[in-house]
Write a protein that binds this DNA or RNA. Structure first.
Lengths: 237, 237
DNA sequence: CGTGCACTTGACAGCTGTCAATGCCGGTGG
DNA sequence: CCACCGGCATTGACAGCTGTCAAGTGCACG
């Protein structure tokens, strides 16, 4: 669970979270959780698997805005608007649950601490988007790819520290291209170069980082360090 | 105030907000509210004027991540991390106030409704970043400029509907270049083209939109419509 | 063994960055 | 009142990264 990154959860906190989720439902790879333009601004909790949210522009091109991992809340940015801004597609077979918004309202009343943690997580999402925006504006394709790999690796490693420098993921090179705003062709060329320079190895579903320093230099952004247990957070109960 | 975009504020709501802000302080144009890397992760409320937050990458290039207007909270994305991720510079003479984080914690306890509104505003910020990310990945400089102008105009118009199609702002073309990830030289060329096509006029501090449809097409993203008075929001009191 | 998806490679064009010089305008000082 | 100055914007020439089109390879799966 994302919450634990910021503070310990008491039993009371955990029970406050329970009403948010209903029964888990499965969905096949390739199916959509939501389409852009949908009137229902639903929120989901991803329980297993990978999803991606994408936004498409006039000429049909699409940008992958975010990759969701198990434990991530999906759809929050659609909350303030009347139509879903992004499509959410399952990159693998997944298990998800719908989040009841009335329960979300109650959460703010009954568990200020958990609400504050949810707030913190949203700020972290903002920061990740700011980083990606900066990278997109200032770095070439190699730098963009490096930055995204580092960000994704950090997220995966938070879930499972035992992965070391290995990144197992269902994303294709075309997916990475959509994530960093490049074409699949050019992304392939860049990957080939990074392989030649022994920065990483990259086979179908497994990427291994060999030279993290080189990736950091390509990316050009500092690592973000999470601040845990902030003193201003409301106490549990 | 941003909050009013989403719901009416009762007197109780307003009084819940008061402890957040201390005495207003002025700051000269060009001075910094915060530097990237600062250990203090402070939050500010901008009361008058314009600020911009920027992130710089290894080679010295910098990306303007966001332009803040009066009423905006500044520094929230720095909350989850130990060092300030962005620098905040005053684009004009400004008046600001520091936000007391303990009061922020109390806000979650004592006014769930206002906390939920703060949460909604953060989701809106996320959405704006997602839009900008998509634009950066998928559109050329003309499209990026168009999209940013539309987004900025919508924000200004929310504050003051009487501005019509005119956009008065202290941003230079070099600022716009940093905002959309282009060089000042190329931005100037694109502005010249848009002028020739009678899409807009652009003089030092005043931009007038003549053909909004053309801008929308260049941008390639739909307009976002705010959903007010959502039923799940906690009631006041 | 055939089919489809993912990836690779080559050739070429175009958008955009870089370098450099010039023009414009408001503010300052003589 | 006029000359100078600095910030901002414009224009030209050229190189380079990246997109596009197209063909080909390799691997997984039925």
């Amino acid at each position: 669970m994302r919450f634990r990154s910021y503070a310990e959860l008491t039993p009371a906190d955990l029970s406050a979270l329970l009403p948010l989720v209903s029964e888990p439902k499965p969905l096949r790879k390739g199916r959509f959780l939501q389409h852009e333009g949908d009137r229902s601004t639903a929120v989901f909790l991803l329980l297993e698997g990978w999803t991606a949210s994408s936004m498409s522009v006039a000429d049909g091109a699409r940008q992958l805005v975010k990759v969701h991992l198990a434990g991530d809340l999906v759809g929050l940015p659609g909350l303030p608007v009347t139509a879903a801004p992004d499509s959410v597609v399952a990159l693998t077979d997944i298990v998800f649950s719908r989040v009841d918004m009335d329960a979300m309202g109650d959460l703010f009343v009954q568990s200020p601490r958990v609400a504050a943690l949810l707030f913190l997580i949203s700020q972290e999402e903002r920061l990740m988007l700011m980083d990606r925006l900066t990278i997109m504006g200032q770095r070439d394709t190699a730098g963009r790819l490096a930055a995204f790999l580092l960000q994704l690796h950090a997220r995966l490693r938070r879930q499972d520290p035992s992965i070391g420098e290995t990144l197992r993921c269902p994303l294709t090179q075309a997916n990475f291209a959509d994530l960093i705003g490049a074409t699949d062709v050019h992304t392939s060329r860049v990957v080939t170069q990074l392989r030649k320079r022994k920065v990483l190895s990259w086979s179908r579903n497994e990427i291994v980082i060999h030279n993290r320093t080189a990736l950091r230099e390509l990316a050009g952004l500092p690592e973000r360090v999470v601040a845990r247990n902030q003193p201003w957070l409301p106490k549990s109960e």
